[in-house]
Every structure is written in structure tokens, then in C-alpha cells.
Design a binder for these strands. Structure first.
Lengths: 351, 351
DNA sequence: AGACGTCATGGGAACGTTACCGCACACATT
DNA sequence: AATGTGTGCGGTAACGTTCCCATGACGTCT
């Protein structure tokens, strides 16, 4: 209460109170080496009685390990990345480490600044969703690093954790086929993003396995936003088509935007148009109809990234590249053509 | 590239390269005191040439200031808290500080653990959404602290930042009245939560000012979740009523749950039931109809909390208690009875 | 019984930084 | 010419911890 402004007790205070040297006190508190039980108990008692708490700054300076990890993601306010952060945080806490979180806003300059801050703070390592193409600085100072997200593929030398896009796309397309949609239209992200290419490649592979010509698939691009999805869907609806339209969007926000565009056009989802999303953000649950989507394991990615980073810090790079499996969240945005009317299958795919 | 495993350069390396003592090097790098321009330039050149970066751990140990702040919130994966975290993070970064984020999951034990970790990490101060009623430990070690959220009111001695519930409720009720709903039903949180009492008190005051008897308002409780709101709405719909029903939910998730319950009952929002939320989470935008809500300024709260914490750290407690204004986000979940049919006003409120 | 190993403990250095003090020199003042 | 004043710089201590080595006591083996 009143003694707020006094100095925090150090190990020397503990040692004095226990009547031993600081070396002995340190040993007793560390728990391990040669110490009489009696001495250890006395030191521990002294420590709790003065309210001693080990100074991690000093430990870090002495040992070269700060016990802190850095996390640089585009935006902590984005639900997916918040989920990643949560997973990373929990995993780090379980190992007694703390997490320094920074948002780069997809800005390479901000990213560089944050990385500099992390190095100055002497974090033991960093997890980064890379925006910039240039990571010389990271290499130069030897900051152990693990990348997350699709863009990590640009850096083959660095360990990374991401979602298994191939498996996710397969999951989504299999589900579409099961519901009677053989050749869905695609709403993809901007051509500049690497994630787009990976997504498209996975779709192609799947189509070829199923003897569907990938070329017949309708494709529209847009920004990875609600508005981007809305506009892409609008263009899709403007195209000539027969029967039911199924759409696979590369991102939940786009899928939700697409849903809005369907409504704007006076059509009904899922009666006239089926929509499948990709991400698994909570908002999809509240849309009407609920958005069926392929959910990325954000939290698991965060956890695995931390584990991978620990390996990296200890110089045992067992796994260079980890892909986490996604799972399907079935809600109401897909019509089931296989039961209701098995004869009239997806628009462009047949006839 | 190859020189990864070499020791990071210290100020001594800089000093040697510049041909000065480390004191001089430190002075030159600090920028301030008596130094020839020529010497300073030489030191700065040496620093950049060896890639020197000041070790914050050492600085922290020497100065007693770690340059880090702690943030303990219920859940970083909750959109509102993520928004708070984002604001705090940005504000801290602007001041050259880093933020350590922890999620307590509304668990007092986890909260205590996180606070202990923060003290050990020697953060300069902490921002906490308090779960526990017992903060003796905080006082005892004199960790500068700022509280956020409604529950902060339990601790009158500690600075706090929160949303202005009274103003928010007034905003919501005024809007309801403007749309022709004089006496809305309320969906509130559990009786144990302080936020509930504050919300209800604000409603009462507003009603009395408007000559409406608060006792006539229908009230249902529930957990602050989608399911809680759904069940509360179900009970509300089971009650006898006349005409249009308007509902003010104390939380957006509950409001979305209520919306689902309306749909489950075969009714239409906003035709049969109007729903007003409170929080401003992004999901409200994607619901159908879009959720009209009173939005809390999460980001601003985070920023203000950091500023307040800086004041606290420097022992100038100018403002002990800050309430941030909320704003109305109008979307589609409220029927406008004032135009369409001004004669048949809200159910229980009249006649 | 003497040499040696084991074990609990104490003393000191080191991590990288900054604050303080002191020294030497230049210049202005009496 | 002797004294004060200011300025640029170097030396050293200190922050709190851990690690290494030295010391002394005790027990064991030949």
C-alpha cells in the first residue's frame, strides 16, 4: 500500500536476509546444483518474504536470451491474424516467453521499422508475415526467424508455417462436387499476390484429376475486401449463364461481398447462387445465409510458428516448411443440387 | 549472409573503430552533451559501418526503464479487444515503446500469472481490463497501472479509460425514439457484471428525463454471447405483445443472436422486430439486415489508455478517469415507424 | 594416518549501457 | 602572470544476474 515507491528487492536483498552469499541465493533459486535442502528452504523463504521477483532484463543481459519473441503481422485487428496472434501468444506463454506484437499494415517500411525495434529489444526470434521482398537486414544480424503466410514461399531458405492451400482447395472443390457443383466460378485476389497463383494452381490440379477442363472456369479478380468481392460478383452475374451459379471465393470477406452483390441483384443465395468462402472468419457465421467456408487454422498456425521458431533459435531446423490442414465449415450458403434436382448440374460445367 | 553467427557489435566496438572512448561514443550516440561535431560524425559513421544497434536490455537495466508496456485483455481474438490492442500498440510505437499483449480469458488466475510475467519482464507499466477483484499485488510492487473497461469502476483509486456508457445509451435510445420506438425491450448481460448495472442505470435516467416509466420496459438477461442473445430473444418473443417489438441489446453478439432468434421464429427483422446493438464489431456489417449499433471507440480507448499510462509512469496523474464517446452506426435492423405509420408506436410504451 | 575427492559455499568477473567524476587544455578575467 | 571558467574527453562504477573458480570442511580410500 504505502511502500509503493521503494526499490524492488534484488537477489542481494534475498541473500542478506537468508544470511548467505548472492551466489548461493542464485543457486537456490535456480533450483539445480549443489545446495543443502535447509539452505534452499531458507533462501526460498527469504525470497517470498521480501517479495523477490527475478529481473528478466538482467537475466537477458547476462545470458543473451531475453525470453521475448516478436510477431509482425499485417493487422492485429483483422480476425484471422488476431487468431494467429492468440495461438502464438498461448504457445509462447506456455514456454515462459512473452510476445511482442506489431502490425505492419502491409507496408514494407513499417515492417522494417518493427523489425528494427524487435532487434533492439533483443527478442530471441521473430515470426513474420513478410511484406517486403528484401530481408538482408534480417540475415545480417542473424535474428532467428520464421515466416507465416503464403508470401513466405518467396524465401525458400527460411522456415515457414502456412495453411495447406492445396488441401484446402481440394476440400472446397470436393464439397462443391458433392453438392452437385462441378465447375464453380472463381473469385480470386489481385494478380500481384502470390496466394492467388497458389490457389489457382491447386484448382487446376484438382480439375485435371477430375477430367474437368480448367479453362472453362469463369474467373474474376478483386481486392481481398468486401467491396472487391462485391464487384467481382457483379461482373460474374453480368456474364451469360444457365441455371444455378456456384462461386468459390479465395477469401471470406470477398465471399461476403459476393453475397451482398447477389442480394443487390435481387437473387437469392443459396437458391440461385451458391457461395463458398475461404478463411473461416467469425463474421461468416452471422451472415444470412451462414457462409460455408474452408477455415484456416489460424490459432494452430500461430502455435506451430512459435514451436518452429524455438527450433530455429536452438539451431535444430528439423522442419523447414509446414503446411497446416484446413477444414470445412458447412453452413447455409451452398445449394444441394445433388438431391433436389440431380439432373440440372452446375452451369458452365456440363451440357 | 555468411557472418550470421558473429557477436552483435557493442558500443565498445563503435568506440574502438571511431578511436574514442566508450563514454564519448555513448555521448555522441545519445546526441546531447559536449561533443565536437567532428567527433560526433566520426562516431555515427563508425556506428553505421559496424551495424551497431543499442541494446535495450542493457539500457533498461541501467536506467530502470525497459521501454515496454503490458496489455492484459480478455481475448485478443475478440474483435473489440483486438481493436483496443491495435490502438494501444500504435500509440506505444509512436512513443518508441513496445507492447506485451496477454489474454486472460476472463480468468483471474490467468490474469495474475500474466501480471507476474509483466513485472518480471520489467515493463514500465500495464493496461489491464480487470477480472479479479484483488489487486494488492499490483499495489505492492508499485507497477504503474491503467484500467480499461466497465469493471474498472470497482477500483476508484486507479486511473481508467472506458467508453461513455451513459452517452452511448442516450445515443441509442434517442435514435430508437426518433424511429418511433419509445420503450424498447432490453437484452442485458448477467447480473454479476458491473457493466449491466451501468447500462441499466443509464437507461433509467434517460427514461425519467423523457417521462417514461422505466418499470414498463421488458428485460431479459443472458450471457454476452450469440447464444445468450438468442435465448433471451426467444423468451422475449414468448411474452405477450402488441405490434412492433424493438430491442436494445447490451452487446453486438447478443444482438446478432437475437436476430437469429427472430428468423428462427419465422419473423422478419426489421419488419416485425427492430434490433439495436452495442459494440460496433465488424460482423454486424455482414448480418442481414445490417446491424444498427452504438459503436465503442476501441482503438481510441487503447490509445488513450497508453497516454494515460505514460502520465501515470511520470507521476502526473492529471486525469483519473476518462470516458470515450461512442457513435451510432446506422444500418438496416431498425424499422422507421415514425414515417411509415406514425400512429402505431412501440408496443408496451403507449396506450 | 596422510592423500585425495566431494560437496556446500563465497568471491569475483562479465554481460552492455549510462552517469558521474576528474583531467587537460584553451581562453577570458583580475 | 596567476587564477577562474568552460569544454571535450577518458576512466570507472553501477544496474542485477549468472557463471567460473577458489576455499574450506568433511569423509573415504589406500
Amino acid at each position: 500500500m504505502g511502500q509503493s515507491r521503494t526499490r524492488r528487492p534484488t537477489i542481494i536483498d534475498v541473500a542478506e536476509r537468508a544470511g548467505v552469499s548472492k551466489s548461493t541465493a542464485a543457486r537456490a533459486l535456480a533450483g539445480s546444483s549443489n545446495i543443502t535442502d535447509e539452505t534452499r528452504e531458507r533462501v526460498v523463504a527469504a525470497a517470498t518474504s521480501v517479495g523477490y521477483e527475478r529481473n528478466h532484463l538482467a537475466v537477458g543481459m547476462r545470458s543473451g536470451r531475453s525470453g521475448m519473441l516478436g510477431l509482425v503481422i499485417p493487422d492485429i485487428a483483422n480476425p484471422f491474424w488476431a487468431d494467429v496472434a492468440r495461438g502464438a501468444q498461448d504457445r509462447a506463454a506456455r514456454a515462459g516467453a512473452s510476445l511482442l506484437v506489431f502490425s505492419s499494415d502491409w507496408d514494407p517500411k513499417a515492417e522494417a521499422t518493427h523489425l528494427k525495434t524487435l532487434r533492439r529489444a533483443r527478442v530471441d526470434g521473430a515470426i513474420v508475415n513478410p511484406v517486403s521482398d528484401n530481408f538482408d537486414d534480417l540475415d545480417r544480424f542473424g535474428l532467428p526467424c520464421v515466416f507465416i503466410g503464403s508470401s513466405a514461399e518467396r524465401f525458400p531458405d527460411i522456415s515457414s508455417v502456412g495453411s495447406d492451400i492445396a488441401q484446402a482447395v481440394r476440400l472446397g472443390l470436393d464439397h462443391l462436387v458433392a453438392k452437385g457443383h462441378r465447375a464453380p466460378a472463381l473469385i480470386l485476389g489481385p494478380k500481384s499476390r502470390l496466394a492467388r497463383a497458389r490457389f489457382l494452381r491447386a484448382v487446376h490440379e484438382h480439375c485435371i484429376e477430375r477430367d474437368v477442363d480448367p479453362a472453362i472456369l469463369a474467373i474474376e479478380d478483386g481486392e481481398y475486401t468486401v467491396e472487391g468481392g462485391r464487384q467481382a460478383m457483379r461482373r460474374l452475374l453480368d456474364r451469360p449463364r444457365v441455371g444455378h451459379l456456384a462461386v468459390f471465393a479465395a477469401n471470406d470477406l470477398m465471399a461476403l461481398g459476393a453475397m451482398m452483390a447477389v442480394r443487390d441483384a435481387g437473387l437469392d443465395c443459396p437458391r440461385d447462387v451458391s457461395i463458398l468462402g475461404f478463411d473461416g472468419i467469425p463474421s461468416g457465421e452471422f451472415a444470412w445465409p451462414g457462409l460455408t467456408t474452408v477455415a484456416k487454422p489460424g490459432r494452430d498456425i500461430g502455435e506451430k510458428a512459435v514451436e518452429s521458431l524455438f527450433d530455429e533459435i536452438q539451431h535444430k531446423p528439423e522442419h523447414r516448411r509446414i503446411y497446416m490442414p484446413c477444414r470445412l465449415m458447412e453452413r447455409g450458403s451452398l445449394a444441394d443440387l445433388s438431391i433436389a434436382a440431380p439432373q440440372r448440374v452446375a452451369g458452365a460445367g456440363r451440357v
